[in-house]
């Protein structure tokens, strides 16, 4: 039991590290060489000991660009994820606790409204009208993305609060706050988080979609999606421009999902062994 709890803390720490520290490590790695410095004498260098990941058509270091772009994209995606998650917990929690009364009705109504139009379309429309920069666009997506996880969180809060083990704790005289914090929250927090985290790759890629609409990051700032997308255009000429960032992204997500899957299993295990 105790070791399960320790493992959960360990995995949570790993997860936070991946989401909120690794992007900054990538950023600083990318800034060791200038990711936007043009060097026309070294165009299309193949990967070698001088340039680990080679150089692109303007002689810019692919290594610096890959890590800088990965850091930037993941940082923005994590921020957007965090905004959505916090909003989902607060609003979904309020809705779940006030089941059927007016706060729940209002919040559920707003969720349904957001559901009626794919939220990226709302973001595109808003971005077309107010034309924000890429950071604000991600914030906007975060501000709209809470609907799906909030709906899940609301449902699990309501379901857990009517479950046998919560009833038993009420009979025991535990306060509602204690029941919520110790028995409802830890179990209800998992499904909305999972739903959000499986969306991170698309979140990173939204940049590519937005750039079709002239709304993504502006060159020369590299972002992961743009780097891969543009690199694919010249893949026959220089495979390394797109392959390294794509590989970095896939490896990062495989590690991320390993941790997330482990966490889900642990929480599920502790959830069932408790009652």
């Amino acid at each position: 039991m105790k070791s399960t709890r320790k493992q959960i803390f360990l995995q949570c720490g790993l997860l936070l590290l991946l989401l909120f520290v690794v992007p900054f490590v990538f950023l600083s790695l990318g800034q060791r060489a200038d990711p936007i410095a043009i060097d026309s004498s070294n165009r299309y260098l193949e990967p070698a000991s001088q340039a680990w990941f080679g150089t692109d058509g303007l002689g810019r270091s692919s290594f610096a660009r890959t890590f800088y772009a990965a850091g930037l994209s993941l940082k923005m995606a994590s921020q957007s994820l965090l905004v959505s998650f916090v909003l989902a917990l607060i609003l979904g929690g309020i809705a779940g606790l006030t089941r059927g009364r007016w706060p729940d009705r209002i919040i559920s109504w707003v969720i349904s409204v957001i559901y009626t139009i794919p939220f990226v379309l709302i973001a595109v429309a808003l971005a077309a009208v107010i034309q924000p920069d890429i950071g604000s666009t991600y914030l906007l997506i975060g501000l709209l993305g809470w609907a799906a996880p909030a709906r899940l969180f609301r449902a699990s809060v309501m379901q857990l609060r009517s479950s046998q083990h919560v009833l038993a704790q009420r009979a025991y005289g535990f306060s509602e706050t204690r029941i919520f914090l110790r028995s409802v929250l830890p179990l209800a927090i998992v499904p909305p988080f999972l739903g959000l985290i499986y969306f991170v790759p698309e979140l990173v890629a939204i940049d590519v979609g937005l750039s079709f609409f002239g709304l993504g990051a502006q060159p020369p700032t590299p972002t992961l999606g743009r780097l891969i997308y543009d690199g694919f255009g010249e893949v026959r000429l220089a495979w390394w421009i797109s392959v390294f960032p794509a590989a970095l992204m896939i490896v990062f997500f495989i590690i991320l999902y390993r941790v997330v899957d482990g966490l889900t299993m642990l929480v599920g295990k502790s959830g069932t062994s408790k009652h």
């Binding site: 499986y198 790759p201 999606g225 891969i228 997308y229 694919f232």
Partner: peptide, 18 residues
């Protein structure tokens, strides 16, 4: 099939097209 979530659709699309 879980690998379907590790890469965004555009990457899969471009790799597939290639």
């Amino acid at each position: 099939v879980g690998f379907g979530v590790v890469a965004p659709a555009f990457l899969l699309a471009m790799a597939g097209a290639l």
